[in-house]
Every structure is written in C-alpha cells, then in structure tokens.
Write a protein that binds this DNA or RNA. Structure first.
Ligand code: MN
Ligand code: MN
Ligand code: ZN
Ligand code: ZN
Lengths: 132, 132
DNA sequence: AAGTAGTTTAGAACGATTTTAAAGTAAAAA
DNA sequence: TTTTTACTTTAAAATCGTTCTAAACTACTT
C-alpha cells in the first residue's frame, strides 16, 4: 500500500503537505522525533512547510494511529513512527530513546485493573545512564 | 526526622517558602500534582508564594530526590511525592494517575541494557480507559 | 464547471516555564 | 553581635512550544 492509499484509508485527504510528511515518516524506518526535527527533515528534502501545518498533520496522524506520541517529561512533544506496542530505554541525560520490541519484555505479574476500567496498553520504560 | 532536618540533609536551606512546601508535600500522603495544584494548596493553607519560587523549589526538591517528576505527554509537568520505585495506571482521557506498588508487578524477562549503560530504574505504565 | 467542506498559512495568541535583576534572608566569618 | 557572603525570593518580562485566527487555497462532490 502506498502512502496515498494509507492516508485515504486513515480518512485523511492526501494533500501535498501530508504526502511530504508521509514520505518522510512512513518509510518503514522507526524513529523518535519532535515537530522541529521533522521541519528540519522537510527543509532538507527541499520542501518547506508552516510549523502550524506540521503540528496539524502530526495531530491528525496521531489520532489516526499512523504515528504515536511518547510519554515524556521533556517540554517538547516526542513522536514515534513505531506504532506496534513496544517499550523504551530512556537516557534521561540526553533524552535519547531506544526501542525495545514487545517480545523482549515479559510481564509475569500485573496488578488488577481498577474497577470500571479496561487495560489499554502496557508500556515499560527502562531508564538508563552512561556508565562512569 | 522533621522537615527542617530533611531539607538540611538534602543540602537545601530551610527557608520559609521551602518549609511551607515541605509541610504540604512531605506529610506521608502520596500525590501527583502540578505547580498550579501546589500553588492552590499553598493559598488554601493561608500562605502565598510566587509561581517562580514554586518552580524553583520543585526543581530543587526533584534534583535532591525529595520528589519525582512523572513522564507525561501532557504539556504541564506532573510531580509525584512517592519517591519509591513504583508504577502507574494512566487514564489518558483525564490524565489521572494511580500508583501501582512495585511488588504488584513482576518483570520476568528484561532486555539487555545497551553497551556502556547502566539500568537506572524500570517504570511500567498501564494505560486504562473507562469501560463503555 | 460550480459548490462545499476541508486544509494551509503567517502571524497573533496562549500557557507553562524560565529568566532577570533587585530586594531579602540564612549561614559563615570576623 | 556585627559584618560579610552566598543563596533565595519576587514581580515582571521573556521565552518557547503549541494552538488559534481568519483569509487564501485545494480536494472532492455534484
Ligand atoms: Mn511532557
Ligand atoms: Mn509549553
Ligand atoms: Zn519507540
Ligand atoms: Zn506515583
């Protein structure tokens, strides 16, 4: 399925801008990135785009499940092209995230989900720091 | 150990403002809160404090390990008085966090820590959503 | 082709957080 | 105790990521 079809299937009009972003993000290589990172990639690819459009687009892509947003205590939103359930290493010093595939973690015992709620995904974060 | 001693031990001068905050946060009851939540509690206690001081203080407390900051994709920082290693349920709709004690989770299989790094803490986040 | 609903954009606005710089306070030195 | 020093608090301004506004544009439908 090409990117135009992916956008259509997600219910999004394949505009020029969304195609530019899809071509960058949906190339099968997983990455963690900010809106500014993406704008730099867009610029490097010889295109340009308003930051408002980039935010609009990332929000749409996220809400359609084409990308994810990572939980982060940094003040800049971090997005993730790996939409499979997976986990992360986090170097808190640098903010660097490294993917951990789902089958590399095994949760043996899980607490009971609170009354009236459903489990909607489990994420493991392993904080790491550089060895001295 | 009283709060004045706790601050001294953490290397912080026990100023009037830090004592007011310590009296609210270090009462043994665990909570998740924002800077604004804390300012409201300070006001309710008959005191008042500049928001800059509240941020200064929260940063110092966090860096000293008296409180933690939670990983969150919301744009407002969320702090946690539970400084033990523990986990969370997160209702993504409301942002509500519920503590999971460390012994309620058992990680059977963990990936190898990347070369040159040390494990610096594991956090499990269980996203939950209200049952329909 | 014409209509319409959705999209892009520059720039303004917003909200959380940090910075500034001056006044105040706690601890150390005398 | 007084003096000195470094640290802290504050209001206000600045900063920065993100969202909003409203006008121009474009994709899709009729
Ligand atoms: Mn965040
Ligand atoms: Mn912000
Ligand atoms: Zn990832
Ligand atoms: Zn907690």
């Amino acid at each position: 399925m090409n990117n135009k079809e992916k956008l259509r299937k997600a219910g999004l009009r394949p505009t020029k801008q969304r195609m530019i972003i899809a071509d960058i993000l949906l190339d099968g290589i997983n990455r963690h990135f900010t809106a500014e990172n993406l704008q730099n990639e867009i610029n490097s690819s010889g295109n340009s785009m308003s930051i408002a459009t980039i935010y609009n687009c990332l929000k749409k892509f996220r809400n359609c499940g084409l990308i994810k947003q990572v939980e982060s205590s940094k003040d800049t939103a971090i997005f993730d092209t790996n939409i499979n359930q997976h986990h992360h290493f986090l170097d808190e010093e640098t903010g660097e995230l490294i993917d951990i595939e789902n089958d590399e973690v095994n949760l043996h015992k899980l607490p009971k989900i609170p009354q009236g709620y459903l489990n909607n995904g489990v994420e493991v974060l392993i904080k790491i720091k550089k060895q001295v």
